[in-house]
């Protein structure tokens, strides 16, 4: 027991050492928020507070992303955070309602520089696995023989049905994600460390879009999703568009539709500096190192 605790503590110390050397500053942001996340398939856990005074709903953060971006907009420079995050309605053997996340932002980095930086971070943790890098489109060609960026929704549905997959989706991105999860991901199991980058624009989330692709990446270790990173949107207008689109989708799916997070948008009057950021699931990472 104590050995395992010491090992984890040492793991955390090594991460902190890595960031300290690169002058990335550790921060600690609020976990109990006024606004829940708007992501279509991520749900916040609600907490009722101040019942004896004036009851309000507060939401446990599902990731420290927006709070950290407020700091970035105020000129924090490179920052990282290691914290517990909370998500409702999580299911599956690798998903939990509470888990530890490492999130960090590097100013001036594009996603390729950030992927290289993650490889360096992993090296300090004793991970020297060979690194594979595949664009989302390459992965689909190589492992699924599908030209994912140029295949329309109707054709993808036919492909899904042939594979015994459900095709009952409202939006193409949901079907792309299903195809990736069930056709591509299982074949990444042979790759110890694999970055998938440049996602279809339809899956841009909070990443910058250029042409058909969003500058977004995920790290897979032995087929397990470990990290998700973006070349971050900078302007408030971009965030507003994403939030509105997500809330619209939530409404169509008859899910909880919160108010748009105006407090965050107003903090972006001085837009975010160009930066790339990534969120890493610590337990998943550890499970692939041991």
């Amino acid at each position: 027991m104590r050995d395992a605790l010491k090992k984890y503590a040492c793991f955390l110390a090594n991460i902190r050492q890595f960031f300290c050397e690169q002058e990335v500053v550790e921060v600690c942001t609020l976990q109990l928020l006024e606004h829940p996340v708007t992501d279509v398939y991520i749900d916040s856990i609600t907490a009722q507070v101040n019942k004896d005074i004036e009851q309000k709903s507060r939401y446990l953060h599902t990731s420290p992303e927006l709070e950290m971006k407020k700091l970035l907009a105020q000129g924090s420079g490179d920052i990282y955070q290691i914290c517990q995050v909370f998500r409702d309605n999580e299911q599956g053997s690798q998903n939990f309602n509470e888990f530890t996340m490492l999130e960090y932002y590097r100013l001036g980095f594009d996603i390729h520089q950030l992927m290289d930086d993650i490889v360096q971070l992993l090296k300090t943790l004793g991970v020297h696995y060979p690194v594979s890098k595949l664009s989302y489109a390459q992965a689909f060609i190589q492992y699924g023989n599908i030209d994912i960026l140029n295949t329309d929704f109707k054709t993808l549905k036919i492909i899904a049905i042939k594979q015994g997959l459900t095709s009952d989706f409202e939006w193409i991105e949901d079907l792309q994600i299903l195809l990736f999860t069930h056709l591509i991901e299982p074949q990444l199991q042979t790759l110890p460390l694999c970055f998938i980058y440049d996602y279809p624009a339809s899956q841009s989330a909070l990443a910058k879009v250029e042409g058909q692709v969003a500058h977004r990446f995920e790290l897979y270790m032995n087929g397990v999703e470990i990290a998700n990173g973006y070349d971050e949107l900078q302007e408030d207008a971009g965030y507003k568009d994403v939030f509105s689109a997500e809330l619209n989708k939530r409404q169509q799916l008859v899910k909880f539709v919160p108010e748009i997070n105006q407090a965050f948008l107003s903090q972006l009057e001085n837009s975010l500096p160009q930066c790339s950021g990534v969120a890493i699931g610590m337990a998943r990472l550890l499970s692939q190192i041991n």
Binding site: D39, V40, Y41, I42, E90, Q91, G92, S93, Q94, N95, T166, D174, I177, L178, F180, T181, H182, E185, Q203, A205, E218, E225, N228
Partner: peptide, 14 residues
């Protein structure tokens, strides 16, 4: 019955 939930995507049952 195996449940898969991608970080950003919808959960599915294989």
């Amino acid at each position: 019955n195996e449940i898969r939930k991608p970080g950003k995507g919808q959960a599915s049952n294989k």
